[in-house]
Structure formats: structure tokens, C-alpha cells
Amino acid sequence: MASFDYTELIKEHFFNPRNFLKNDADGAEFIKNADCYGEVGNPVCGDVMKIWLKIDRENDKIIDCRWQTFGCVAAIAVTSMLSVMLKEGSGMSINSALELTPQKIVEKLGAIPPKKFHCAVLGNEALKSALNNYFRKTRQFDRIIPIGPDLLDEKLKLTHKEVKDWIRNGAKSFEEIEARVGTKIENPETKAKIELLLKNN
């Protein structure tokens, strides 16, 4: 089913996406040097977004980013626009990034068909997922914004939704989950819950 009621700006970003991660040596280099990584969505539901960020720790701001998206026209345009917003000027402060909402991304794009709004929600979550990865790595647990309501670990503010998405996107072992969390998972109860999710998903 087609829907061509997209703004010129959405189409422009779709046809000429900015800042996406290329599957080449440069892309691999970016991943290696990225400070954090986030991913949301899963192929069962359709859209999947991945975001890698470089962070200026001293000034607490995002200085570079790359992304990959599996999804429709709107999903691709949203991630592209988000990357432009994050890199604008000398980069977005982490506090501003935390305040970013799906609505603000849509405003930048002009408008989005109502049934595509979930793409902006996903884009925002991808960003938050990457920031959470950074916060967990740097042990700033108080700054984490949980993705989804169902907490799996209080301290890490890790949710069922986050872990399920990772599994559906290919994480097969506890170690791979831990790598996505960004820090050691010490709570034995959390460990047990993740093992169970790995078994059942």
C-alpha cells in the first residue's frame, strides 16, 4: 500500500539520507570508535533502527552519529533527520538529547502521516537506547530513561522490551546482551530473567 502524502523534506531525506553507517571499512571504523550504540524495534514488527554515537565526555555532548534503518520511507527519513538534529552546530548536548521527543523530530520534518508517527517514536527510542548504553557504560544510572514500562533491573533501568528487541535482532547469548547493556550485569535475578528471555524468544 502506498502513501505518498509525505512532505518534500521527508522525501528529500529518504532519497538522500544523511549520516548513515556504510557497510564498509569506514563504517567498521566508526563502530570501533563509537562511545555507545542503541537499537530498537524488531523485524517481526517491521522497523528496526540502530544508532551509534560519539560523545565528547568533557562537555557532555554528542559530536557525531551514524545509523541504519530497516523500514519504510518515513522510518528512513526520521532517522536521517534525527542524525542531522544531533549533529547541528557543534553537536547536541546530552541534556537536550534527553529532552528530545518524537513530536520534535516530526516538527523538523514538517509533518508526518498519522499512521507513520510510530516511526518518530522509534527514532526517539533509538536515540534513548544509545544514550542508555552510554550511561550504563559510564555508570550514570540516574540519567537512564527506561525504554518501556516493564523494568527487568532496577539499577540498570533495563526493560523487558529492550532485551526482547536485542534478542529478536540477533543477540544469542548472555554475553551479547551484556555487551549491549554496556556494563557487567551483576544482579543474579536479572541474569536469570535474561536467560529465560533468551530461552523463550
Binding site: 500500500m1 502506498a2 508517527f117
Partner: peptide
């Protein structure tokens, strides 16, 4: 051309 997949309010269908 046409596509079989459709975008619903929450996800791709």
C-alpha cells in the same frame, strides 16, 4: 508497482 506490506498505526504489517 504495488507492495503487499502495509504500514499500520503501530508497525509494519
Amino acid at each position: 508497482v504495488s507492495t503487499g506490506s502495509a504500514c499500520s498505526s503501530k508497525s509494519l504489517e
